[in-house]
């Protein structure tokens, strides 16, 4: 098994940076969800790398299965909210979501 823990974390940090940048910059809600997905992918690789480093690969797989399910639930609910909001207000611009503003 050839793997390198520090190099893995180097790529994980790059992936996290891309996702965080996407979430900070974009106004489109679907783009925000895409950024969230990229960040969760980086977290997933982090868990499997930590599992490899400590010889607990099956436990890491177990946690990853739960993570994937949480990811799918969040994305499904978020996209349902986006579609509903678009039907009501004809927009998915996050700066225009001010209906709940006090």
């Amino acid at each position: 098994m050839i793997y390198n823990f520090p190099i893995d974390w180097f790529f994980i940090s790059i992936l996290f940076f891309i996702g965080a940048y996407c979430m900070v910059v974009s106004k489109n809600i679907i783009k925000l969800l895409i950024g969230f997905e990229i960040i969760s992918k980086s977290a997933l690789i982090a868990v499997i790398t930590a599992g490899l480093a400590t010889n607990n690969i099956n436990l890491a797989q177990n946690i990853i299965i739960v993570m994937i399910l949480v990811e799918a639930v969040v994305i499904a609910s978020g996209l349902a909210l986006v579609v509903k909001y678009y039907r009501l207000n004809q927009s998915i611009d996050i700066t225009k979501i001010i209906n709940l503003k006090g």
Binding site: K41, G51, I57, Q61
Partner: peptide, 15 residues
């Protein structure tokens, strides 16, 4: 490649 086939299958099918 990291010898985690169950997680890989879930990732491929769900994500």
């Amino acid at each position: 490649a990291y010898n985690a086939p169950w997680a890989a299958v879930f990732e491929l099918s769900v994500c």
